[in-house]
Design a protein around this nucleic acid. Structure first.
Lengths: 211, 211
DNA sequence: CCATGAAATGAGAGTAGCTGTCAAAAGAGG
DNA sequence: CCTCTTTTGACAGCTACTCTCATTTCATGG
């Protein structure tokens, strides 16, 4: 227990990570960068783990140690915890739809902060490579669990109850489709705008607007 | 062109399929039966294509000719077209939520008609085997497309529009979660009842009911 | 009934993702 | 500098899946 904050001989606010940790992070990024590069050059299927290992200057074994599957190399997904935290820090009396909208906006801002190229490549792969989409959907399940938890906290319901679970998954399904839509249309439209339209549909169903 | 209704020397209304077609159907079922049996005995992962081929008395090559992936052997999914047809045949002036509810009820009846053992094995595998769940979710996408089409026909919207697509996928996500919920709880509760609760949530959101 | 053409099958080799083991190398701590 | 632990690399192995090609099986027309 008690991660860090213990024996930080370096008084600076720097990470204070050991050489080992730093190397691990570097290896992780080397693998990801190599993967993005190779996929960009030759496509997803044509890119083998061996090639990735070679370009990242590690052994194939190491690649598997860092990422359980090839799809996981491109699907980072480190946002969920951030989103959860953001959600929890919203005022308790704020209407739920408002909280949701606010947090989703924040999340897309975070997404835009990182290299937009990467974020687009990722969504493009979601559309084009079935395996990646599958993996993505799978990760949706765990995201759904967290959402259930958050909703349960806010509404005092059972996080394992059917209603909460159904609601969470329908939400995620809708949001997922928004990403696909965005990617399928060549990332032309403004994602935030799409998001707003999506949330409208999820709140009010298919209303009477034109299209 | 012109399938059958040509030279049906057998005046009976029987299928009038050639020996070849009949054999194909038999092979298909042999493979599925073998798969269900083996998985029931030893589990999904422990069951290899070779074993399936052996029990079905065909070659491994043939298994792959009939089913592109191992997961596809257990995921039949021949209901989509039926559901679509049922949906189309509803009176045009029926409110959309009512149509949806009616059709979903019909679908579960169809599902119960076939061997309930098989249907339960399938949902159980969805919960337990990630690969199967992934494949299932993937098939959801195509189901979603059909739903979009149906919704578009009913409401005069663009089937490719964001709103319709989001609505369809959120629906499918919710329904999917219902199946998972049902399987996770040992198929104890009445599926139709769960379905009704699900549709309530999808229509009205998380209302004010207790739980 | 047989010959011809087409379709289905089987056998085999090959690819790649992924798992496991084990010994060597590199960092951490005394 | 020595020891312990973690990380890595090399290797073997399994299995899903693909591709090719020869063989068998059904359909058809004479």
């Amino acid at each position: 227990m008690t991660t860090m904050t213990e024996r930080t001989t370096t008084p600076a606010d720097r990470p204070a990570l050991g050489l080992r940790e730093r190397k691990k992070i570097k290896t992780r990024e080397a693998i990801r960068t190599a993967t993005y590069g190779l996929i960009g050059e030759q496509g997803y299927d044509a890119t083998t783990i061996e090639q990735i290992a070679e370009r990242a200057e590690v052994s194939p074994s190491t690649v598997f140690r860092y990422f359980p599957t090839k799809e996981d190399i491109v699907l980072t997904d480190e946002y969920d915890p951030l989103i959860m935290e953001e959600l929890r820090s919203r005022p308790a009396d704020e209407p739920w739809p408002d909280s949701l909208r606010y947090v989703m906006h924040r999340a897309t801002q975070l997404g835009a902060d990182e290299d937009p190229e990467v974020s687009r490549l990722r969504t493009r792969l979601m559309v084009e490579v079935p395996a990646v989409r599958s993996r993505m959907m799978q990760s949706m399940s765990s995201t759904g669990r967290m959402l259930c938890q958050a909703i349960a906290e806010r509404t005092g319901r059972d996080p394992e109850g059917l209603e909460v679970r159904v609601y969470a998954m329908s939400l995620i399904g809708g949001l997922m489709e928004t990403s696909l839509y965005w990617a399928e249309n060549g990332h032309r439209e403004d994602f935030q705008a799409l998001l707003d339209r999506t949330l409208d549909v999820l709140q009010h169903g298919l209303g009477t607007e034109k299209n």
